[in-house]
Computed example of a mutant assay.
Amino acid sequence: MNLSLRTLALLVIPPMMWAGNAVVGRMLVGTMPPVAMNALRWGLVAVLLAPLAWRVCLAPRRILLRWPYLALVGMLGVGTYNALQYLALQTSTPINVTLIGASIPVWMMLVGRVGFGQTLQARQLVGAALSILGVLLVLAQGQWSVLRQVQLVPGDLLMLLASLAWALYSWWLAQPPAHMRGDARPDWDWAEFLWVQVLFGGLWALGCSAVEASWLGAHTLPGAPAVSWWPQGWRTWAGLLFIAIGPSILAYRCWGLGVQAVGPNLAAFFINLTPVFAALWSALFLGQWPRWYHPCALLLITAGIAVSSGWVRLRSDRGQNRGAT
């Protein structure tokens, strides 16, 4: 499969924005509860998209006929993935979170194989191995002995669950039910479709935020400072606006187009660029500059994308192609 420059841009912008989301999310730790922050984020997205998408409400029957699917993708892509990521950032670092998020291609292949009957090709497995090797290089900080000392914290485990949720979301986005395909598909544009997802996912996020508020209220120690449920200060508002516009609207739009263009398996490999962008974002905002192993990891991840996309063909693939002809 040949990737055009436009498709490459569509697939590179999301990991760039999501890396920024992880760094900004870490910067906002302690300013407000993480699940409430996710709910407010998508509330801002709903407001920003409303001028482009409000007409979808003129035909509510189209939504009601498809509500189980819309509720599912909204819950997975809007309500679950991001809430788990912000929870993970409470105890983990942006680099760790994005590194674990780079396991999404593996989850994507497993979900495709088990849930959608997709066959795995040799080049996909080799590409996954190269990309994971690049991720491990960053995790090891250029010294493989460091890997033996890595300890997973609760946030790392939460990010594993988030990665599985995103893999499921992407497959349901690429393989929708019959009423969302062909002539049966409603004539929603990208903003209307995303807005409907946000409406359903936002309800899930609000419900989870209420549970979080109840739990925090029951477990707050006497004399402890009260938790602010509303953003305090212009820095918090600036961070929320960034994650509402960049990682939400812009990234989701590009991701949807990218998945439609190349499929979820190949698109998933571009998520492995997120840790590299996280290192760059961390350098800009946290003063943590990239080390020599970051560009090396980028080369490995790029090689994985090249192999999985067919830019670099394996001998077994060429043999299979000759046999097919």
Rank of each mutant, 00 (worst) to 15 (best):
V56Q: 14
T31E: 07
G77N: 07
L10K: 06
L168W: 03
T220F: 03
P14L: 03
T98M: 02
L203F: 12
A306I: 02
S209M: 01
L194G: 04
L125N: 03
M109L: 14
S92P: 06
G287R: 12
T274M: 15
L10N: 07
Q232M: 10
G43S: 11
L84C: 15
V211R: 06
A244D: 00
A53N: 07
W230E: 01
A19E: 12
A178M: 02
L120R: 05
A140V: 06
G246L: 04
Q197P: 05
S131Q: 04
W311G: 01
G182T: 01
Q124D: 02
I301Q: 00
V29R: 06
P176V: 13
Q232G: 01
A297T: 09
R55F: 03
A53E: 04
E192A: 12
W190C: 08
V227D: 00
V111P: 03
E192L: 12
L300V: 07
T220R: 09
A165T: 13
G233H: 12
L5I: 06
V153E: 12
T220E: 10
S103D: 04
D156Y: 14
L99K: 09
L130V: 02
W107D: 02
L5C: 05
V24F: 07
S4G: 01
R55G: 03
A283M: 05
P33S: 11
L5V: 10
A174G: 14
L216F: 10
F200G: 09
W54V: 08
L299C: 14
G287E: 04
P177E: 11
V307Y: 06
L173W: 12
Q197N: 13
Q118K: 10
W42K: 01
Y81C: 08
R315S: 10
Q90Y: 04
A238L: 12
S282D: 02
G217V: 05
V227N: 04
G310Y: 05
V114Q: 06
R318G: 08
A167R: 00
H294G: 00
A210V: 10
